[in-house]
């Protein structure tokens, strides 16, 4: 194929988009609708993911030390836990602070309950708050910390607490949300492809005669296919560009309004963080759907 022919195909493909007028509008609209829904779901999944990641990273291991543990022992244990490769941070919460936190947590109603406890009679032990790099390793790290008791004869670890069960449940929910989200997105993608191939099939049906004439004057199949290929790509591109524009506008509005409302406990991923990947993904999908749709629907008209 020479350069002139390539230009011709591009020109013809572009012309066809306009010649088919409303059919093109219908194709573009169906791409916009499907990709937009897909984009909304993608944003939802991404945000749920990031929210779950945030929640994951908040999972801590509370290590309560025995009341017999002295300062030297405490520092030894703290250093030992800090040296574990799964652990990212170990913070000491002295018993006095622990009591204060506990009082705050109980609030007004629990005030009476803790009446009479002061520095000397404090029932709360020293606590080491352990954070890990990978949330899924929490149970493993907890058991490792517990095992420290075997190393030291005076059993410095009183109790290890990491919300057993709660963590596992959280992981399960996160995974479920991700899977359902991705399944939904995949389903919508297929639906979009079906819609587009159908729309283009209608335009090709209308052009059956045209294709017949092309073949009659000796056009090769490739020659006939090219303009349709370009047309599909153009429709896909325009549709996805409109979608990206709409998604960006809507999403950034949403991010702004969420940011303004400080009572909400979560934040949305800013556009600057996911915008590029999202745009590339949607435009890529749009092109793929458009090209796939046009190639598939022209196939059977090229036989004979």
């Amino acid at each position: 194929m020479n350069f002139n022919t390539l230009l011709r195909h591009i020109r013809e493909g572009a012309k066809n988009v306009f010649r088919n007028g409303w059919m093109s509008v219908a194709s573009i609209t169906s791409i916009v609708v499907s990709l937009f829904i897909l984009g909304v779901f993608l944003l939802l999944v991404l945000n749920v993911n990031s929210f779950a990641d945030d929640a994951d990273s908040q999972v801590q291991i509370s290590t309560y030390l025995g009341s017999n543990v002295d300062k030297a022992m405490r520092e030894k244990v703290q250093a030992e836990i800090g040296a574990m490769e799964e652990v990212s941070k170990v913070t000491l919460i002295p018993k006095a602070e622990g009591l204060k936190d506990f009082k705050e947590k109980l609030g007004e109603e629990g005030k009476d309950l803790l009446e009479g406890y002061d520095e000397t009679t404090n029932p709360i032990p020293d606590t080491l708050k352990v954070e890990v790099v990978e949330p899924t390793t929490v149970p493993y790290v907890a058991s490792k910390i517990k095992a420290l008791n075997e190393k030291y004869p005076d059993q410095p670890i009183y109790k290890v607490n990491y919300g057993q069960g709660t963590t596992e449940k959280l992981f399960k929910i996160t995974r479920a949300v991700r899977n359902i989200g991705f399944a939904f997105v995949a389903g919508l993608g297929l639906m979009a492809m079906f819609l587009i191939s159908n729309t283009i099939r209608v335009t090709i049906l209308a052009r059956r005669r045209e294709i017949g004439i092309m073949k009659l004057v000796g056009a090769t199949n490739m020659f006939i296919r090219w303009p349709f290929f370009v047309e599909g790509a153009l429709i896909g591109f325009v549709g996805s560009a409109v979608t990206v524009g709409a998604l960006f506008f809507g999403y950034s509005q949403l991010v702004e309004s969420v940011k303004a409302d400080i009572t909400l406990a979560f934040h949305l991923i800013p556009v600057s963080e996911i915008g590029f990947q999202l745009a590339v993904l949607i435009v890529g999908l749009g092109l793929l759907i458009g090209i796939w749709g046009s190639t598939m629907s022209i196939r059977k008209f090229l036989k004979v």
Binding site: E210, G212, I213, K215, L216, G218, A219, T220, N221
Partner: peptide, 17 residues
């Protein structure tokens, strides 16, 4: 296609685009 390029075809209904 290459053989058809050497054959011109004309129809009753013209078959123009």
């Amino acid at each position: 296609p290459y053989v058809r390029r050497n054959i011109g075809v004309i129809f009753q209904d013209f078959r123009l685009l």
